[in-house]
């Protein structure tokens, strides 16, 4: 059994040189992480397309690598790096942290899993618990997203265990946008479908190599059209939907199609 003497024996006697080394390791790690978290997003904003995503996604991975390296270097300076010593010290640390900071540690572990499973990466558009926005950064404990209303939402990685996470572009450039149109039931549906397709095809925001779809649904109050297409840049999704809506409405008015007026239709006696 481990007596207090045995436990203390696994720790090295820390000399002043060791303390200086540990200080330098911590300082170096902090510098590297600060540089990576500031410089890479700056560079990412200077390039476009998929390179932006690669650069943004590399930030948390780099941070994890730096922290792991710093921990290994520090631990080997504090204790004798034998298997037994490591097992004992990690076990004791795990027990203490498990009781005191259960959720915090759970978030940290989920953060590591996040890097491996990548349910979201910087640059992705995700929805968690009703909050929708672009992932700006992934820290060790939480992810920060910025909503379209420019509000920062901090989401602990802990949510990964038991919440549904909706990822709209999943690490890529392809983010499907939908513009809805609600029309009075009396119209030439084929012609409207064709016109809405051309509305998307002629949008300056359109990623033209991706498919354009028009879904038509007949409802009690009229006809519901869903125009689905992909913008060139996921960040332009709201401008794209606005553009589709404005030009779609203009084209439909030009065609002489009436828009659904729900009360008017629903008030017709059956």
């Amino acid at each position: 059994m481990n007596s207090p003497d045995n436990v203390s024996a696994i720790f090295r006697t820390l000399s002043q040189a060791h303390l200086v080394q540990i200080g330098l390791i911590v300082l170096g790690a902090w510098l590297l992480i600060t540089l990576a978290t500031r410089l890479l997003p700056l560079l990412a904003n200077r390039v476009s397309g998929r390179f932006r995503f690669y650069l943004l996604a590399s930030v948390p991975v780099l941070r994890l690598l730096v922290i792991t390296s710093a921990l290994v270097l520090t631990v080997t300076r504090v204790i004798e790096p034998t298997i037994e010593n490591l097992m004992v010290s990690l076990g004791a640390m795990g027990l203490a942290l498990g009781f005191a900071f259960k959720d915090y540690v759970s978030s940290l572990i989920a953060g590591v899993v996040t890097l491996y499973e990548a349910p979201y990466r910087p640059g992705d558009w995700i929805e968690v618990n009703g909050a929708y926005g672009e992932v700006k950064s992934i820290d060790m404990r939480s992810a920060e997203i910025v909503t379209p209303d420019d509000t920062v939402v901090v989401i602990p990685h802990l949510k990964l265990w038991d919440q549904l996470i909706f990822n709209a572009n999943d690490g890529g450039q392809n983010l499907l946008c939908v513009a809805d149109f609600y029309l009075h039931p009396r119209h030439d549906a084929a012609q409207v479908k064709h016109t809405l397709h051309d509305v998307a095809l002629t949008s300056a925001f359109l990623q033209i190599d991706k498919p354009i779809n028009v879904i038509v649904l007949e409802k009690p109050w009229g006809t519901h059209y869903r125009l689905k297409a992909y913008p060139i840049d996921p960040r332009q999704q709201f401008h794209f939907i606005t553009d589709l809506t404005l030009r779609g409405k203009a084209a439909l008015i030009e065609m002489g199609v009436e828009f659904a007026a729900m009360p008017a239709v629903s008030q017709v006696p059956s």
Binding site: V47, S48, G49, Q173, I208, I232, D233
Partner: peptide, 14 residues
């Protein structure tokens, strides 16, 4: 033209 083409290609335009 060469710079414009490169710019648009980098931005994933057609």
């Amino acid at each position: 033209y060469p710079a414009v083409r490169h710019f648009l290609q980098a931005g994933d335009y057609l």
